[in-house]
Design a protein around this nucleic acid. Sequence first.
DNA 1: CTGTTAGCGCTTTCAA
DNA 2: TTGAAAGCGCTAACAG
Lengths: 338, 338
Amino acid sequence: MEDDKRNTPVTLLDVAREAGVSPSTVSRILNGTAKVSADKRKAVETAIAEMHFEPNQLAQNLKKGCSMTIGIVVQDIASPFFAETLRGVDDGLKATGYASVIVSGHWNAQEESERVKLLLARKVDGIILLSGRLEDDAVLNFARQRPIVATGRALQSDTAIGFKLDNEYGALLAVRHLIELGHRRIAFVAGPADNADSCERFAGYQRALAEANLEFDPALVVEGDLHEASGLLAINRLFETQQQFSAVFAINDQTAYGVRLSLYRKGIRVPDDISLIGFDDLPGSLYTTPPLTTIRQPLYDMGLVATTALLGLIGGKKVDVTMPSLELIVRETTRRFR
Amino acid sequence: MEDDKRNTPVTLLDVAREAGVSPSTVSRILNGTAKVSADKRKAVETAIAEMHFEPNQLAQNLKKGCSMTIGIVVQDIASPFFAETLRGVDDGLKATGYASVIVSGHWNAQEESERVKLLLARKVDGIILLSGRLEDDAVLNFARQRPIVATGRALQSDTAIGFKLDNEYGALLAVRHLIELGHRRIAFVAGPADNADSCERFAGYQRALAEANLEFDPALVVEGDLHEASGLLAINRLFETQQQFSAVFAINDQTAYGVRLSLYRKGIRVPDDISLIGFDDLPGSLYTTPPLTTIRQPLYDMGLVATTALLGLIGGKKVDVTMPSLELIVRETTRRFR
DNA sequence: CTGTTAGCGCTTTCAA
DNA sequence: TTGAAAGCGCTAACAG
């Protein structure tokens, strides 16, 4: 291992000089843009190796007008929900030469908008918007500067693609499952009232009840914030107000974890006394005690597909996305009533 | 909301022309580099606003020789362990103008090295290396190109800082806790044999036993891979070989989750029959059933402190890092023996 | 096949 | 205070 010299940034020009050729020749070899005679090529290559030359991407980018970087907007950098999707993005970018800069909108349209502008100012070549809060129009507007693919919204233009999963259907699957098991009084721990996903899942919940001719009891739905603590609080509330129920459908897995803990605290067994179902199928749901029955969202695939789609848009290709749909994963937190 | 015009990237020159000043003047206003008369300033500012001008960062970067970007190397983009640290990084970068590009080394020194080179080629202004696999020398070498701060290793030079927590001490705390509760046969689910953290924690485990004059029984330690599944497998193995034990110390929380599930499957109660302690204190450990007793690593702070330190190095300041130390968090998976 | 010549969009001396 | 001019390091016509 030879040590490099100091902070002497060696440039393409240095290499050209060293190899006794013109800069263009070096560039051509670097990019494979044109044929170069064997001897010059060899001279250049040894020069590059000896001088430890690395082309300056900043300069390349400026010249080419693209940055080989895509921007990812998440809402919470530490949430397992986004983490799983990011893994898909990461794999989608593998060996493409693209890197990603990840920023967080923190579930706030205002902040999200600024992040997007930041990414645009950095000249990212495209943007992936995960569960954004922005208005569709705002997204479309941004998309005129750089291609955007977004999850959780239906969108389709030359430079923007959005796809969303059928939340209502997912919730329907979940609640149907509970009903088929004989449950009649099913609590629903919702998300924030202004959350579109939550509203759609609520609709699914209601539809499933209606299908089965079960009465909808508003007292059985309590609003949470999509996090564990709110699941715990929600169940506590239900008990305080003396509601009767034999099953709970949680808006997402994280909420379900909180529900689970609340039940544990009260000495209520899952699934023996109460059945519990979540939504998302986070990796951790395989290892709750007992493992959580849930609705699987193809998180990883969403990341992967979004990335492929974005790369397509960037390349000016037509792309259409197909996404695996939601499915019920029956594990061990649900069982027949009584 | 006015719509922007097409894809007409408006440049600083356009603004200058529009405002009837020289490009330098516009630049000066943008950067506050020098005083500009009020009228010209106003002219430029209105031009900027009207034309929706956004300076091209690529060009700025090339000129200034820095990219206002830092690189973060993690080992697994989707792991809750890194997620929590990334949150600290994110907060540390807030309002600094820096963005971060996150890449994954996938626990592989080779890949990690390439990622770092990639970041360097992209001219990041500094690098944060989380739980890297690289040799210290390699890190130091890279650090001559750009400042680096690394976790999980002790390092100190002009351009590199590393800090590590005292794994042995943490493990000591964990096992002591178990011993104080009266446990005598304590199983240890380790990490890979070549994992430094794991070895150090193993040392702490042994030290705690020695302190208490307890015999070390190699049959009670089984190797895992730091993930949930291996915790489950490890316990199964222990039962297959008919080991007797009343407590288990898991190398990390994720492993502990697997242990917990294995125990659940066998109808063994935690903590009534067997006590369980983890290491890390992941956010999810608050919501396992029951909540997990563990050794708290200041994950978030590590990210925050690393970022502050790196920004210091980049600014050429002297920085010294102080990190909160490990602490025992007693929750509900440990209890007195018998 | 190869070198010369212009820039990419911005910043920054250097003079005025 | 302001403008002209010279690049940052690289690529891409355009000739030859």
